[in-house]
Simulated scan of single mutants.
Amino acid sequence: MSAAIPATPADAPPRRAGWGLWVVRIVAIAALLVVGWAGLTAWGAIVHGHPAYGVLLVATAIGAVTALALTIRRTARSGRSSRPTRSVVWRRVGRVALVALAVAWIGVIGWLRPYPAVEPALTAMVSDELVDVTETPTGITLAPTAGGDGTGVFFQPGALVDARAYAAVLRPLAEAGHTVVIAKQPLGIAFLAVPAFDEARSAHPAIERWVLGGHSLGGTVAAMQADDADDDVDAPAAGLLLFASYPAGDVSESLTVPVESISGSRDGLATPSKIEASRTDLPTGTGFTEIAGASHAQFGDYGPQAGDGTPELTDDEARALISEASLAFVSGTAD
């Protein structure tokens, strides 16, 4: 009787994927699902937004596909160590750490999905005989076709909000002769768009003074920028316009320009009590305009927002009142 011949590596059956490889596959598939969800639900905001988020989505998809390919290749290898060595143990620990980081990364990518602009903001992005609209990867400019006056408005969107969402509410300012520049923030975070104000001033040297404004977190950053630029010699800050927002700290003594705080009585995020508390952090003489019945998300056109209150005004009614109060303030700084 002939003895059994041991299987050679070439004859060995392919090994099954261990639980670790399945975890990697599940995480990779989850990453692709999140990328697909973001692309399907916020495609316009991604395409028209700052390119940083789009780059992260592409990098995430490439990483996920690569991870899937590597797990398939590893499963196809034959043979298995009967006893894990110390180096194998450390490799496994490293894989667990990488998987944990990947899960956190997927969460961040999903959280960074922007709120896409909706009508009438999209229509307001179209040029006509009164306003010339231009768009770059880092900003939107609404310029009066008649040339405008020497006052410009630099606006910081709220966190994760499509910059186009403010076109309709700010367009009346451009129609009245004030050039409006809306920043496209990297990853939708205003703190990452601080240099955008200097870029706007360089791009529009004819503008003599700037009103800085912003919605929510954008207003908080705009307050910092106005505080820094209120004594600029070339193109100083001439005012601060806050949409449902307040400064991060006390600027009541350092900020020397006029301030207008416009808020909503039904705001569930920048609540009326928070706006009231901000009085002591803003200069004496700051104007406070509360839009009765307006919510947080009605300061732009991007749909409902989690945590917000229920509005008692239509979007059109709220937008008209916000635009009216904004125009009165900006025009006043130009006098």
Rank of each mutant, 00 (worst) to 15 (best):
A200T: 01
T141E: 15
D11L: 12
H296A: 11
A52D: 14
I46K: 05
T314L: 12
D232I: 09
L321R: 12
T123K: 15
A238W: 04
S216T: 06
K184Y: 09
A238G: 09
A159V: 11
G94L: 11
R92Q: 10
V27F: 01
L101W: 07
E260P: 00
I106M: 04
G287Q: 06
T66P: 00
Y115K: 12
A30Y: 08
V233C: 14
L70P: 00
G177Q: 13
W37E: 00
L142T: 03
A10T: 03
L122F: 00
R91H: 09
A10P: 00
D132N: 15
I262S: 01
R77M: 08
H178R: 10
G300L: 02
H178G: 08
F197V: 13
L282Y: 10
R25L: 08
V65A: 15
A297T: 02
W37R: 11
V131Y: 14
A52L: 13
L173T: 15
L122N: 07
E290R: 13
S87H: 11
D250W: 00
G107F: 03
V118G: 00
E276A: 14
S263F: 13
S278M: 11
F155A: 00
Q185W: 12
V103W: 01
G287E: 06
S245E: 05
A30M: 08
D250P: 09
A206G: 08
V118F: 02
G293S: 01
D231F: 08
D128K: 14
P120T: 09
A237G: 09
R15A: 04
D267I: 05
F299H: 12
P304C: 12
Q305G: 00
P272W: 14
L313F: 10
D128L: 12
G139V: 03
A100F: 08
Y166E: 07
D230R: 12
V161Y: 04
H215R: 10
I291K: 05
W210G: 00
R74I: 04
A200N: 05
V96N: 06
G249S: 12
R113S: 03
R16L: 05
A59F: 08
V194C: 01
V55I: 15
L170F: 01
